[in-house]
């Protein structure tokens, strides 16, 4: 499958994520959208990784070609997991305090 399909799919997922972050007020949904964006990137990284590996195999080069991309994916997944744990904790605390997960209430930094 040509690489372009993956790129377009990732782009679409990423944009959906951005739009979600920008438009939604519910913190949990924003959170999910951020995850969506991260995963869009992950998908792209895996796709490129595969592409490079395939290209290297044809040229009979080293078999490690393209592994960096997959490494990054794992890295991102770890960071995302950490982020989820911290972020969800914040959301829970927020809900406890203001009985809502609407981010538009979170404007105390103003002024």
């Amino acid at each position: 499958m040509p690489i372009q399909y993956y790129i377009i799919l990732s782009l679409a997922l990423f944009c959906i994520g951005i739009v979600g972050v920008l438009t939604r007020r519910n913190a949990i949904i924003i959170f999910m959208c951020i995850e969506l964006m991260l995963n869009a990137v992950n998908l792209l990284l895996v796709a490129f990784s595969k592409m490079h590996y395939a290209a290297a195999a044809v040229a009979n080069k080293a078999a490690t070609e393209g592994t960096e991309g997959q490494l990054f994916v794992f890295f991102i997944m770890v960071v995302a997991a950490a982020e989820v744990s911290v972020g969800l904790a914040i959301i829970v605390m927020m809900y406890r305090n203001i009985h809502s997960v609407d981010v538009s209430f979170l404007n105390r930094l103003k002024n």
């Binding site: 438009t23 981010v103 538009s104 979170l106 930094l109």
Partner: peptide
């Protein structure tokens, strides 16, 4: 511009 809305900042 610094309105405290996270959405605004992200935009």
């Amino acid at each position: 511009l610094q309105n405290g809305q996270v959405g605004g900042y992200i935009l």
